[in-house]
Design a binder for these strands. Structure first.
Lengths: 126, 126
DNA sequence: AATAAAAGACTACAGTTGTAATCGAAAAGG
DNA sequence: CCTTTTCGATTACAACTGTAGTCTTTTATT
């Protein structure tokens, strides 16, 4: 049951499928062509690897395959976030946010969103 | 000038040096022995790789080397955080915190710390 | 002094990753 | 029908990783 490791390149492909699903290999190639200079073959390889890892599935449509994700983006991000925060911040988000704040400068909107989030939390558990 | 990639195993070694520095190879072996079942040779290899990557340095003390980090943990975490948040949350921390909150449940203390952080921010930039 | 233990250097080796090229079958074009 | 294009499948191949083992040189030990 261990989460299959998804490499960086694989992630970019998977991310396309999370946005637009199902999609054929050439759909993915098209979508990625705007911001990546990857050869078509490279993308096909990555799709194949994701299939082998059980991260995405496909169904044949005539000769082409239509691919789709087998895991939800939220689940993936939740897991990754947990391990990331665990690894670098002893599992606490506050220092992450603090560090982020000092370096990236939060916008007023960001801060308001955070406040709203906290207010919501306090309303839920009091 | 590209930040050298630090692998997971390498990170664990580096993390020891961030806590206790300078340290000899056997110091690191000792420290890691409590929570990792790594062979001494493995750790030596990792130290060597970190040196080659320019992530840590050392100075000879008689026959042994004393290793020390060449990059600050804060700098490393800042960079990693930025790329992590950029990759998974379009660069916004709020959704990260939100996702974290729904899954990991924040403690009252966590929330208070966040509030303090925000209050501080608002005081600084108003 | 002879030998064993210990340190770092070098070597090993399979699995993963990035980045494709080639191969065989099928479909589309002429 | 024969040729070219297009799919997916298979193969390639070097760099990076995890995980040590061997070699050489020192320094303890007996």
């Amino acid at each position: 049951m261990s989460k299959p490791d998804i490499s960086n390149a694989e992630f970019d492909v998977l991310d396309v499928l999370w946005e637009r699903n199902p999609a054929s290999a050439s759909d993915v190639v098209q979508t990625l062509s705007s911001h990546k200079e990857w050869h078509e073959k490279t993308i096909k390889t990555l799709l194949g690897r994701l299939v082998k890892k059980g991260v995405i599935g496909f169904e044949k449509q005539q000769r082409q395959y239509l691919y789709y994700p087998l895991i939800a983006r939220e689940d993936y991000t939740a897991q990754e976030t947990e391990s990331f925060v665990g690894k670098l911040f002893k599992g606490k988000i506050t220092p992450l946010v603090a560090g982020f704040a000092t370096q990236k400068t939060l916008s007023k909107d960001d801060v308001n969103e955070l406040k709203a989030l906290i207010a919501q939390w306090e309303e839920d558990n009091d």
